[in-house]
Amino acid sequence: MKTNANALSRGLVRCHDCGHLSKVNTPHCPVCNGHLHPRKPKSLQRTAALLLSSYALYLPANVFPIMTVTRLGSGEPHTIIGGIFALIDSGMMPIALLVLVASILVPMVKLLGLSLLVFSVYFNWPINARLATVVYRIIAFVGRWSMLDIFMITILVSLVNLGGVAQVIAGPAATAFACVVVLTMFAATSFDPRLIWDNPNAYE
């Protein structure tokens, strides 16, 4: 049998962790003892705050060098975009594309997509709820892949450590970029997709 009602409208709250349904105003889940909330607490405020911090850090992450490559004494700083151009110059198009997607496109799509979702819920925009949920799902899934650049630098830093001959040193943008990745991941988890469906103007 298929019902067509929200659990909350029937006075039921789903446990975030184990999925057990309890009556509204039950403080703890009887199965796993987790805190119960009808929706994630302060979901929009938390997501918006985390998004704002990520926007602020997105700039230094792209402006400052993410690593400095020293060869025979002369240092050459690389930004994220500079690293992609270096890959294109050496004829590694597929890898350049991969880094472009993971370090530039994914963080940008996440920031803009989550911002749009927050706005649509806050201002009750008439949106396709099913589509918005799919967008949310994609954003939540791709977030971790942005760590690619950080891991690549970790490997380069530990391997290319030959004193004056060749050395790779991580730059200040690495910290900023790592923060962007972590903050947007937290933003995605603090957003409650059920709010999309609570919007009275949304359609299926």
Partner: peptide, 13 residues
């Protein structure tokens, strides 16, 4: 016992 969808809160059998 009923269940609910974690992403859209639809009540499910």
């Amino acid at each position: 016992e009923l269940a609910a969808c974690p992403e859209c809160d639809l009540l499910l059998n």
